[in-house]
Amino acid sequence: MSDSARLLQQRSFIELSARQRARALLDSGTFRELIDPFARVMSPWLERQGVVPQADDGVVVGKGLVADKPVVIAAIEGAFQGGSLGEVSGAKIAGLLELAAEDNRNGVPTAAVLLLETGGVRLQEANLGLAAIADIHAAIVDLRQYQPVIGVVAGSVGCFGGMSIAAGLCSHLLVTREARLGLNGPQVIEQEAGIEEYDSRDRPFIWSLTGGEQRFASGLVDGYVQDDAEQIQQQVSQWLQQGLPAQIRSRQSGFYLQRLAALDAQPQVDAGQVRALFKGEQA
């Protein structure tokens, strides 16, 4: 099959809404949404600050099957408030992960899939959002001792802030070429360090350092696929079949701290230097 014919057959994952992404990854007919929009559980803080709230607070959570294996799934809607998390949306994800951990303790082996399109904490909810994200971190660490927690960053929002830490805690992490992953977003870095250090308008430069292809080449994520719902579903299914990874990346802090200590931060680094740095090679 030619490349053009293959592209025509692909179904873009990025173009789907959060709810559509969740359904696309689960076995047909198995998705059961929890706390759906009709429950009207939304942020009590946004309207007070002149922001129109959303009935699901920008997060879709549910249960279903992937290749006949029980999973919980959370999908963040990047189109609502930049995918930022507040008190309610963060609690929905944390509660979902805690529910999965409880299932495992009761003899039901339930894994988790997190679809991460988020800028991190919602500024309008500040400390409440930070507390919720901390609960998500704790819940991931709890659940991943039983079953895999799989993170997917597809695009176009990327995954930043406290939720980039959540991504780093996942058992497996999957990205596309359009994805971005970093602790601080480009505009935040530019604001704090200056445009000479980081020009947020220079898209090729930004993707060369934080884009999905670069993160995969640097060994900071586990999988790299095209923007295709079927490819993403296949990789998620494969990891679920494999079970727990032999080694969790977040437990390799000693290696990464050693590599960062060897970095000369004075000159502007490029993509090749970053890849060599994290792979333990000579830059």
Rank of each mutant, 00 (worst) to 15 (best):
M1I: 07
R6V: 08
L7S: 07
L7T: 09
L16D: 00
Q20L: 02
A22S: 02
R23H: 04
D27A: 07
S28G: 14
S28Y: 13
G29I: 07
P37I: 02
A39N: 14
V41A: 14
V41C: 13
P44S: 07
L46V: 03
Q49H: 13
V51F: 13
V51C: 07
V52S: 15
V52G: 09
Q54G: 11
D56S: 11
G62Q: 00
P70D: 05
I73F: 00
L85Q: 05
L85R: 01
A91Y: 01
K92Y: 06
A94Q: 01
G95R: 00
L97A: 02
E98T: 07
L99W: 12
L99D: 06
A100S: 08
N106D: 14
G107E: 10
V113R: 06
L115N: 02
R122K: 11
A126K: 05
G129D: 04
A132F: 05
A134C: 09
D135F: 10
I136H: 00
H137R: 06
A138S: 15
I140P: 00
I140L: 04
R144H: 08
R144W: 01
Y146I: 02
Q147L: 04
G151N: 03
V153F: 03
S156A: 13
A166D: 08
A167S: 09
G168A: 09
G168V: 07
L173S: 00
V175P: 00
R177L: 00
E178Q: 10
G182W: 08
L183K: 04
N184S: 13
N184H: 14
N184V: 13
P186G: 03
Q187P: 02
Q187N: 12
V188C: 06
V188G: 03
I195P: 11
I195E: 13
I195A: 12
E197K: 15
Y198E: 10
S200G: 04
D202N: 14
D202F: 09
R203L: 14
R203D: 13
P204I: 03
W207T: 15
S208W: 04
L209A: 10
R215W: 12
L220M: 12
V221K: 04
D222Y: 11
Q226V: 13
D228N: 08
I232H: 01
I232G: 00
Q233G: 06
Q233H: 15
S237F: 04
W239Q: 01
Q241E: 12
Q241L: 15
A246S: 13
Q247I: 11
R251E: 15
G254H: 05
F255R: 11
A261F: 09
A262K: 09
L263V: 15
V269Y: 08
A271F: 07
R275L: 11
F278G: 09
F278V: 10
G280K: 14
